[in-house]
Simulated scan of single mutants.
Amino acid sequence: MKKTNILKNGALGALVLSVTFGCASTQQEEPAAAPAAKKDTACQAELAAAEAARKKAASVGGEWRDTGKILKSAKKALAAGDVAECIKLANKARRQGEMGYAQALEQRDNDVNSYTVERGDNLWNISGKDSIYGDPYQWPLIYKANRSQIKDADLIYPGQDLSIDRAVTSAAVNAAVQHAKTRGAWALGVVEESDKAYLAR
């Protein structure tokens, strides 16, 4: 009888100990998950900072060509659980955004704010000059900034002093390029309906 009681008490004690240690080991595993969550949060913060820097650079026309791709890669790395790679890529994208913004402002300060038309010039080749926009498709920006003295976008004259707008937004640049690419047929001395619609925006 005594042996049975001892065995029962021993078995009960072993059960209590296994439950106690089982709970203790579970509690020890929980803190290990906390640093991973902190890393995910750190990556999310870096991604948000990088996206903000990209948008700021884009607002002044200074977004670098591959910044968006780097951000996408960072998000994929986070989704795959590679937090270190996510943070590394997000930091790279943020630095590109900051540098692009600074470069765009510096370029704007160094660039001319007016242009005197020379013989043989047209809005296309003026816009394409590195000192102006460096992109001929942005010629509608010059047209819009000088609508008071340019009646027909296809007719400008030597000696005209054209204002060059340096405070254009990325949305304005996109609208100008879109108009340049979809303008349609044109003729000298005629103000095209598509040009009127562009100026009215």
Rank of each mutant, 00 (worst) to 15 (best):
N91G: 12
K92M: 12
R108C: 08
S73Q: 13
A74E: 08
A93W: 02
K75T: 10
R95N: 15
G68W: 07
A79D: 10
A102N: 12
R108W: 10
L47K: 06
G97M: 01
D66G: 11
G61E: 03
G62W: 08
A57C: 05
A77E: 08
A80F: 09
D66Y: 10
R94N: 02
C86K: 04
E63I: 10
Y101V: 01
V60C: 03
V83L: 12
K88M: 09
V83C: 11
R54E: 14
A80G: 08
E51P: 04
K75N: 10
I70C: 00
C86R: 01
E46M: 12
K69W: 13
G68F: 02
E106D: 15
A58F: 07
A102C: 06
A84N: 11
A50P: 01
Q103G: 12
K75W: 09
L89G: 04
L89H: 06
V60R: 02
A45S: 14
A74V: 07
Q107Y: 14
G61N: 00
L71T: 01
C86W: 06
S73I: 08
K76H: 12
G61S: 01
E98K: 05
D109T: 12
A74T: 04
R94G: 05
A57N: 03
A80E: 10
D66R: 00
A42K: 06
A74P: 03
E106A: 14
Q96D: 13
A104Q: 08
A57G: 08
C86D: 04
E85H: 05
G81W: 05
E85V: 08
M99R: 14
A57D: 08
N91I: 00
E46G: 09
Y101R: 03
C86S: 04
G68Q: 06
G61L: 00
G68K: 03
A79I: 08
I70R: 04
L71A: 03
G61R: 02
Y101A: 06
K88N: 09
A74S: 05
